[in-house]
Design a protein around this nucleic acid. Sequence first.
DNA 1: CGATATTTTGACCCGGCTCAACCCAAGTGG
DNA 2: CCACTTGGGTTGAGCCGGGTCAAAATATCG
Lengths: 254, 254
Amino acid sequence: MSSVLKLGLRNHREQHDSCCDCTIRNRAVCTYYGPQELALLEAIKFYKKFQPGQEIVAAGEVTEFLGSVVDGVVALSKTLSDGRRQTVGLMFPSDFIGRPMQPMAHYDAIAVTPVRLCLFDRPRFERILRDTPALAKRLLEMTLGELDAARDWMLLLGRKTANEKIATFFSILARRAAALEHKAPTDGLVFELPLTREAMADYLGLTIETVSRQITTLRKAGVIELVDARHLHVPNYAALLSVAGEDADGGMIA
Amino acid sequence: MSSVLKLGLRNHREQHDSCCDCTIRNRAVCTYYGPQELALLEAIKFYKKFQPGQEIVAAGEVTEFLGSVVDGVVALSKTLSDGRRQTVGLMFPSDFIGRPMQPMAHYDAIAVTPVRLCLFDRPRFERILRDTPALAKRLLEMTLGELDAARDWMLLLGRKTANEKIATFFSILARRAAALEHKAPTDGLVFELPLTREAMADYLGLTIETVSRQITTLRKAGVIELVDARHLHVPNYAALLSVAGEDADGGMIA
DNA sequence: CGATATTTTGACCCGGCTCAACCCAAGTGG
DNA sequence: CCACTTGGGTTGAGCCGGGTCAAAATATCG
């Protein structure tokens, strides 16, 4: 219930690290910034850690801060009054959390793994946003990317079968894992599933049981292998893509 | 198949109208522009009309133009290789079509009613975008709005029942119709359904038959009345919202 | 007016949900 | 060290909402 982005947590700030050797330096909002512009953000940034399952913001709250995911995975979710829940976005390192120019949060943000955020005070960030076009441009670029990803996900939610949903999700994780090592996905790739079955179900518009059953189905079909419940081995990436219903490398981003 | 935004249609341009008395002057990308900035866009804009069902762009095409919907409704859709189709956005007057900084279209755009677009040559528009922060700001604002709408729609696609989907869609159209007359939705509101049953099914992640059946169900429950197949009467807006599963006025935008 | 598209309705089926049991690994406390 | 929780994950049995297939009813249009 108590949101940490909401109010007065300056006391809990982590110490500064230099932006220059930040792991997300070339992918986050600050990408286009040169040294002196970067100093503007560096001056107002602070880090904050969250435990798995911890709520970062709740829908409807007024947030005082916004910023980037540095480590870990954050789920953005919406909930109906009777408890049905849909995750509308998974935020990985370098993704930006919080909506500029509109302080009220439209969705819950929950840490699904241990998370570290690089946060900025909202009014100060928005002033910098007004004054430096490079930041505005990058933010527009990232938002357009999010929009494309959201629309890809709409196709998945509205039209794909449970089996295709799981395969699509795994193929995206595989691509992401390969990209982190600066290469294309290869056969034999092994990567971690950062989500519980429940978080996967929320993201894919399914139930836990269906997620589990479809994973079993993919396993028995030889499309994937489970190292353990949280580690996946993809013997044949093309086969996975084909089950996912993507032609070649069909557009998904996040 | 042949896309009209793609190439060399300068010959088919409609005549200019003044931006000053444009019907979408205060809501489109140009909102924040003063007279002299507006002249920049005015100089390069042209109008183009489309018939219902006509394709405006196809996914994968490189588009030479982008711009605003002036009249009518455009559906943005994605299609799987076996033909399953999901509409990922409905664009109404003042909405912006086309992705700056990335010429390849990610989805089909199809006119669902007679449509008039106000178009700009891509390279020239992007130059203006670089040079005038007001445009960039407005575009960011609109894109963030689209992202919120897309995520709301993900909740609908992933978690709502067919009945709730239809009711939600109608409540949004009701809100939009009321907003056009600058007032809140009132009981007794009558408005047009601009979409065929098929287009609704594509948007809601359903089949035509289910759409038709659920409309009948809502009618028999007294939540809506059909003036004719394309005109809806809402005797009790609160009842409609309640069926839609929205608390009070739950956040939906487009 | 026939011709063609759109919408509605009916009968049936099946994929994914519900409910329930069970498994397993990791605490936790006596 | 073992008994007991606890939280994730898997599996099974049965059901039902929405899909499929088919046909009738109702626009829309030359």
